[in-house]
């Protein structure tokens, strides 16, 4: 049995008094894609946002239970949150490029980690844009403001930005929700490749996508993790009636 990248035990999450995650227990394995599915508002974003502690920014957010990353409780006092976020990257549900040039969007991510070598930055900008399947569209306009890109291009830039930091884990929160089928296919292909060296978690509303890209899948409903198993099990022989209803589309 390999050591899990993340071991989450008894995780509860609240916004103020609103209880949005209830007793979540889950192991996330390395070099695999874990897909999280479930209806809107069931807490998928809240869950992955507590894995890199980005939810700490929300003042009303509160959590109980343990999230261990390589056996280290990330909510322990002595944890360096900045270092955690460097190692656990995230692509958000809504594209959020910086209002800077395409080049600077990626260069910033390197500069905050002390990389100043111009050649290295140039090379990383190119390689991460290539990996995110955006290079061909923007290679002649790297100085253009990223906010002038289309929504789908912006999202791929955000993916490139995340890759530039070379994290170990990447959390994808519905990365393809604003993408056309061609770029979606490119992103899925990318996820497939990244799996060799990264641990990936992807939230998606697209059942086919979950089935195509993931090795494990978890079904959330109203803040509970109803079922978690190998993807083919979830999609061919779910144990829980509610999972079956949801994936076959008989659910609200």
């Amino acid at each position: 049995m390999v050591n899990p990248t993340f071991r989450i035990t008894g995780l509860d999450a609240f916004y103020g008094n609103k209880h949005v995650l209830k007793n979540i227990n889950i192991d996330i394995l390395p070099n695999a894609v874990t897909a999280l599915i479930g209806p809107s508002g069931c807490g998928k974003s809240t869950f992955i946002r507590s894995l890199n502690r980005i939810n700490d920014l929300i003042l009303t957010f509160r959590r109980e239970g343990k999230v261990c990353y390589h056996n280290q409780d990330i909510y322990a006092k002595d944890v360096d949150v900045v270092e955690l976020r460097r190692r656990v990257g995230m692509v958000f549900q809504k594209p959020n490029p910086f209002p800077k040039s395409i080049y600077d969007n990626i260069a910033y991510c390197l500069k905050v980690h002390g990389i100043k070598d111009k050649d290295k930055i140039d090379a990383t900008v190119e390689s991460s844009l290539k990996k995110a399947a955006l290079w061909d569209e923007v290679k002649n306009s790297l100085r253009q403001n990223a906010l002038t890109l289309s929504g789908g291009q912006q999202q791929r830039l955000c993916i490139a930005r995340t890759l530039a930091v070379e994290p170990e884990v990447i959390l994808f929160d519905e990365p393809c929700s604003s993408l056309d089928p061609i770029s979606t296919a490119k992103i899925e292909e990318l996820i497939h490749q990244l799996k060799q060296s990264y641990t990936l978690i992807i939230v998606t509303h697209n059942m086919q996508q979950a089935a195509r890209v993931s090795d494990f899948a978890g079904f959330f409903l109203l803040g509970e993790l109803i079922e978690f198993d190998k993807t083919d099990k979830i999609f061919t022989a779910p144990k829980d009636k509610r999972t079956e209803d949801y994936i076959t589309g008989r659910f609200g």
Binding site: V82, R85, C109, V112, R161
Partner: peptide, 20 residues
């Protein structure tokens, strides 16, 4: 969302404030 983006790539608070 801009602050989130900056923190998510591992920027510190000061870097986020200063550069974004």
């Amino acid at each position: 969302s801009m602050r989130e983006a900056s923190y998510a790539v591992g920027a510190t608070k000061w870097q986020t404030v200063r550069y974004q």
